[in-house]
Design a protein around this nucleic acid. Structure first.
Lengths: 125, 125
DNA sequence: CAAACATATGAACAATTGTTTAAATGGTCA
DNA sequence: TGACCATTTAAACAATTGTTCATATGTTTG
């Protein structure tokens, strides 16, 4: 069931979806259609959208630390921390270096905290 | 089982967690202990960490639109879009106004896209 | 080499989340 | 008022996710 009027701003029905503002939708559709970044941005925020990972980043902003330090600081299992650090590293939010048995983690770059600060400003409105 | 040495940077074991750098952990612990913002930041990113919601924000950055426009634009159900707009509104990322039967959504403020841009920069590194 | 230790990994489980379907608001207009 | 329409809402389901437990790496040191 396809009902179409070509005039500006008139209703159109296609694929069970109603369009009220055809011109706007068409224009915006063209602009955002071939943007690959959308998924990447969502994935990055997905990584940042976890209490444990935010606490890890916040802690590492203060100082480089090893896994067991972080585990104690957050009151969590070494395993849990290690799992989350892995996620943060895959998102290139943290980096690590090895010194003997101990692995030290730190923030990957300043970008991380820029994002953090923007979020903070939004919250404090 | 608690093994403690008070000297600097020596091992301590408490609550099944090993601390290698006691001084650092203690200092950082004090700094971040009473920060309430951590959960709020994580919650905000949690909202941003979804492909559909990011696409909605990206679209609304171009123009104010109604629910059915957005549904068509994203090729999704009106119900699904409405659900996600609700989440975005609760996070104060979008606002809406009613004009008769039609509800128009738009970005709440410029903060939203600042966060977005920072994320984008991190990705493009 | 073997024991000790810091960290990483895999499987499993509970909890959370996004979409669908169906039905309910809330508004307009004949 | 009553039919119609845009939107919202509730319940249900599948899919994803964070933590735990157990085990495996990899490094140091006796």
């Amino acid at each position: 069931m396809v009902r179409t009027k070509t005039a500006l701003n008139l209703e159109v029905e296609t694929c069970d979806q109603t369009i009220i503002h055809q011109d706007v939708v068409q224009r915006v559709g063209k602009v955002i259609s071939n943007e690959t970044s959308v998924d990447d941005v969502a994935d990055l925020f997905k990584v940042l959208g976890d209490r444990t990972r935010i606490r890890l980043l916040r802690a590492l902003y203060e100082s480089e630390m090893c896994v067991c330090d972080l585990a104690y600081l957050l009151g969590m299992t070494q395993s849990a921390i290690s799992h989350q650090l892995r996620v943060l590293k895959q998102a290139r939010l943290v980096k690590n270096r090895r010194d003997g048995k101990v692995v030290y983690y730190s923030l990957a770059d300043e970008h991380v905290m820029h994002i953090f600060n923007e979020a903070y400003h939004h919250i404090k409105e």
